[in-house]
Amino acid sequence: MSLAEAVGHGVVVPRRHRGALGRQLRSELRLVFGRRRNLILLGALAAIPLAIGLAVKVSPPGGPGDGGGPQFLDRITGNGLFLVLTALLVTLNLFLPVVVGIIGADSVAGEAQAGTLRYLLGVPVRRGRLLLVKAVGIATYALAAVSTIAIVAAIAGVSLFGAGSFTLLGGQTVSPGEGLLRVLGVLIYVWLSLFGLLAVGLLISTLTEVPMGAMAGTLGFAVLSLVLDSIPQLHAIHGALVSHYWRTFGTLIRVGPDYGSLARHLLLQLAYVGIAGGLAWARFSDADVTS
């Protein structure tokens, strides 16, 4: 069959086919999760809770209130689910920002460097649509990263230390089911905590054709935020830092969670998404693609 028979004599009437966004999203996820490096990265994240769990097993901390090590560490021996909280706390400061940085760097800068960006735009994929698809790709990978840590931590924790009744911060004991539910809430909350950085990563990715640079920029942004947050003299700006509330998820396993601070945090993340996402759109919508 020659192309002409499908075409008519040089006349084409393109039509949009229903479900295009779904196909685009699936294609993006396939690209992100089909890449071996990204799977290895998830494997590396899985190793972190395993390492913490084994370390606690080998030399258990002194018991609640011991004071040493990260928050929740002393509770793991009481209920293995606390390994999830410890692992998320430990990875939030470095590993998860690195992951967001790497996948964010791939999203636009990586496609630019490979030259595939010009072919995507030539397909054509509208630029706004492409940004949206890329953002969903990064967010989904971030969810996979947080879930990997949480699931591996839960399995390792429960098999190493058991999962009896769940003692909330503040002393009240709840059923294992409610404990699990609260830990699930923490997982979702930690994921949402990464959205601001994720949007910043996407923005930086549209600014360069060098993925390494985009990744370093995103990580640098996270580290800067963490550092500024640790300087008491800068108290005035702490509330606006993307990482300021990262470590507040513990309130979800308190007897009475501080919903006000949770909401403030989610609004802050939303603001970052709005601003960084808006800038990314402004930049990308008329950027010269010369790669």
Partner: peptide, 20 residues
């Protein structure tokens, strides 16, 4: 310009799937 770690087929599939 294509993704080096994908096959020729997978690269074409990628472009076609992105096409509304």
């Amino acid at each position: 310009a294509f993704h080096p770690y994908l096959s020729g087929w997978a690269n074409l599939r990628r472009l076609d799937r992105m096409d509304e």
